[in-house]
Measured scan of single mutants.
Amino acid sequence: HFTSQQLQELEATFQRNRYPDMSTREEIAVWTNLTEARVRVWFKNRRAKWR
């Protein structure tokens, strides 16, 4: 589960860029205190939901 702060950060990034690269995902991981893998999976799932 994600905190509302984490989701806000993830959503804001998603609005700007639906396909963040590795370095962007790592930055998000640092800001949100999540692993890069969790961030990558979140984006994958979010893109699926967005379609």
Rank of each mutant, 00 (worst) to 15 (best):
H1C: 12
H1K: 13
H1G: 12
H1L: 10
H1Q: 13
H1N: 11
F2Q: 03
F2H: 03
F2P: 05
F2V: 07
F2S: 03
T3V: 03
T3D: 06
T3W: 05
S4I: 13
S4C: 15
S4Q: 13
S4L: 13
S4G: 08
S4V: 13
S4D: 11
Q5R: 12
Q5N: 09
Q5I: 11
Q6K: 04
Q6V: 07
Q6D: 00
Q6E: 04
Q6A: 06
Q6G: 01
Q6Y: 03
Q6C: 05
Q6R: 03
L7P: 00
L7F: 05
L7S: 05
L7K: 07
L7G: 03
Q8V: 10
Q8H: 11
Q8M: 12
Q8K: 13
Q8C: 14
Q8A: 13
E9P: 02
E9G: 08
E9W: 15
E9A: 14
E9S: 12
L10E: 00
L10W: 04
L10T: 00
L10R: 00
E11Y: 04
E11M: 04
E11D: 03
E11Q: 03
E11A: 01
A12C: 14
A12F: 10
A12D: 09
A12W: 10
A12R: 13
A12H: 09
A12Q: 10
T13Q: 15
T13W: 15
T13V: 15
T13M: 15
T13S: 15
T13P: 01
T13C: 15
F14T: 02
F14C: 04
F14H: 03
F14S: 01
F14N: 04
F14I: 01
F14M: 03
Q15E: 09
Q15C: 10
Q15V: 08
Q15K: 11
Q15D: 07
Q15A: 11
Q15F: 07
Q15N: 08
Q15G: 07
R16S: 09
R16M: 09
R16Y: 09
R16P: 02
R16K: 13
R16F: 09
R16A: 09
R16H: 10
R16L: 10
N17G: 05
N17A: 05
N17T: 08
N17D: 07
R18T: 05
R18P: 14
R18D: 03
R18S: 05
R18N: 06
R18V: 05
Y19I: 03
Y19A: 04
Y19L: 03
Y19V: 05
Y19R: 05
Y19C: 14
P20Q: 02
P20T: 01
P20S: 02
P20H: 04
P20K: 04
D21K: 06
D21Y: 02
D21N: 12
M22L: 14
M22G: 06
M22E: 08
M22Q: 12
M22K: 15
M22V: 08
M22I: 09
M22R: 15
M22Y: 14
M22H: 11
S23G: 09
S23P: 10
S23Y: 10
S23Q: 14
S23T: 12
S23H: 13
S23R: 15
S23K: 15
S23V: 12
S23N: 11
T24Y: 07
T24C: 13
T24E: 14
R25S: 02
R25D: 02
R25M: 09
R25F: 07
R25T: 04
R25W: 04
R25G: 02
E26M: 15
E26C: 14
E26Y: 11
E26H: 12
E26S: 10
E27D: 08
E27P: 01
E27M: 13
E27L: 15
I28N: 00
I28E: 01
I28T: 02
I28V: 07
I28F: 01
I28D: 00
A29P: 02
A29K: 01
A29L: 02
A29G: 06
A29Y: 03
A29W: 04
A29T: 01
V30Y: 13
V30Q: 13
V30S: 12
V30L: 14
V30N: 12
V30I: 14
W31M: 15
W31V: 15
W31H: 14
W31Y: 14
W31E: 12
W31A: 15
W31Q: 15
W31T: 15
T32E: 02
T32V: 10
T32K: 01
T32C: 12
T32R: 01
T32S: 06
T32P: 02
N33P: 01
N33T: 05
N33V: 05
N33M: 07
N33W: 05
N33S: 08
L34G: 04
L34W: 05
L34T: 13
L34I: 06
L34R: 02
T35N: 06
T35E: 06
T35Q: 04
T35W: 04
T35M: 03
T35F: 03
T35H: 04
T35P: 07
E36Y: 02
E36N: 04
E36V: 05
E36Q: 05
E36F: 05
E36I: 05
A37I: 13
A37F: 14
A37V: 12
A37H: 11
A37C: 08
A37G: 08
A37R: 11
A37D: 11
A37L: 14
A37S: 11
A37M: 13
A37N: 09
R38Y: 10
R38C: 14
R38K: 13
R38S: 12
R38L: 15
R38I: 15
R38W: 12
R38G: 08
R38P: 01
R38F: 12
R38Q: 15
V39S: 00
V39R: 00
V39C: 01
V39K: 00
V39Q: 00
V39T: 00
V39M: 01
R40I: 04
R40T: 06
R40S: 06
R40M: 06
R40P: 00
R40L: 06
V41C: 13
V41D: 12
V41L: 14
V41P: 00
V41H: 11
V41S: 12
V41G: 10
V41A: 14
V41K: 14
V41M: 14
V41Y: 11
V41N: 13
W42A: 00
W42Y: 03
W42C: 03
W42H: 00
W42Q: 03
F43V: 01
F43W: 03
F43N: 00
F43Q: 00
F43L: 02
F43E: 00
F43R: 00
K44C: 08
K44P: 00
N45Q: 13
N45K: 14
N45L: 13
N45R: 13
R46V: 02
R46A: 06
R46Y: 03
R46E: 06
R46H: 04
R46M: 06
R46N: 02
R46L: 01
R47I: 06
R47D: 01
R47F: 05
R47N: 06
R47Y: 05
R47C: 02
A48Q: 10
A48S: 08
A48P: 00
A48L: 09
A48W: 07
A48C: 10
K49P: 05
K49E: 14
K49W: 09
K49V: 12
K49A: 11
K49N: 08
W50L: 10
W50C: 09
W50N: 07
W50M: 09
W50I: 07
W50G: 07
W50Y: 08
R51W: 11
R51S: 08
R51G: 07
